[in-house]
């Protein structure tokens, strides 16, 4: 079990109508591995995360998490599409942070982080509050517990969102362009939190990002998506310094030119 990947995409295909967004994707991510996904807009990066978070159903293939199928379950000795109960159980191992934060606007930062631990994990109010306070402290927002999202800057909101996801103690964390909606001067504080997470927690991390510098410095592996497939993947040094695929080269030079 220990050398089984934490996440496995096995021949996963996703279509919207006649548009094939992901085409027989195969991708293994080891426990504790940090993987960055880069690629042009529309190449299917977000879709990969959304399928893993079960926000989208897949059309073909199987996704595995922590040694068991996420998208399927055994029923009468056969693999059948996962039912709600199965989805809820396996999905508990995964947390996600969104580009647009998606904080609950009618709850304080603290309440945002307490809601799911209380109502899903069954923690007592005190336990959940202690956990939430500790995480808000970890992301540098100990003094913002009682603030509502509207009272926070973009960077602060995103840090609350990270704390909220962590409060569920996931094994896998997904980040979808979590700094793209931020003013440039606020990007650093969010990336610092992610760095800290990587260093201090046993987390498998999968992030879609346009921050090439960060992807390079932070990840163990970078996957370049093109047209619903992984066109090239490898250690960041190799992929950024010496890409083999022509498309990767074009993409990187376009991105670097844009600064």
């Amino acid at each position: 079990m220990s050398d089984a990947p934490m996440v496995r995409f096995e021949n996963v295909t996703k279509r919207y109508g006649s548009l094939t967004v992901l085409d027989e994707l195969n991708l293994d991510i080891a426990a504790n591995e940090k993987v960055s996904i880069i690629g042009p807009s529309g190449s299917g990066k977000t879709t990969v995360l959304r399928m893993l978070m079960t926000l989208e159903r897949i059309n073909e293939g199987v996704i595995w998490v922590d040694g068991e199928p996420l998208t399927h379950e055994q029923r009468n000795g056969r693999m059948a599409p996962a039912g709600d109960r199965h989805l809820r159980r396996v999905r508990g191992k995964i947390g996600m942070v969104f580009q647009h934060f998606n904080l609950f606007p009618h709850m304080t930062a603290l309440a945002n982080c307490m809601e799911a631990p209380v109502s899903v994990l069954g923690l007592s109010k005190q336990e959940a509050e202690a956990r939430a306070a500790e995480l808000l402290d970890m992301v540098g927002l100990a003094d913002k517990k009682g603030h509502y999202p509207i009272q926070l800057s973009g960077g602060q909101k995103q840090r609350v969102a990270i704390a909220r996801a962590l409060a569920m103690r996931p094994k896998v964390m997904l980040f979808d362009e979590v700094t793209s909606a931020l003013d440039p001067e606020l990007v650093g504080e969010v990336l610092n939190v992610i760095r800290k997470l990587g260093a201090e927690h046993n987390l498998t991390m999968l992030m879609v990002t346009h921050q090439m510098g960060f992807a390079r410095e932070f990840s163990d592996r970078v996957c370049f998506f093109y047209g619903g497939r992984i066109a090239e993947q490898g250690p960041p040094d190799k992929l950024f310094n010496d890409p083999e695929n022509e498309r990767t080269r074009q993409f990187l030079s376009a991105v670097l030119e844009a600064g």
Binding site: M53, R91, G95, M96, N102, L103, E115, S119, V120
Partner: peptide, 13 residues
């Protein structure tokens, strides 16, 4: 729509 997605991601019933 993000409110629904966050609720799913947090596994709320």
């Amino acid at each position: 729509e993000g409110q629904w997605e966050a609720s799913t991601a947090l596994n709320l019933s």
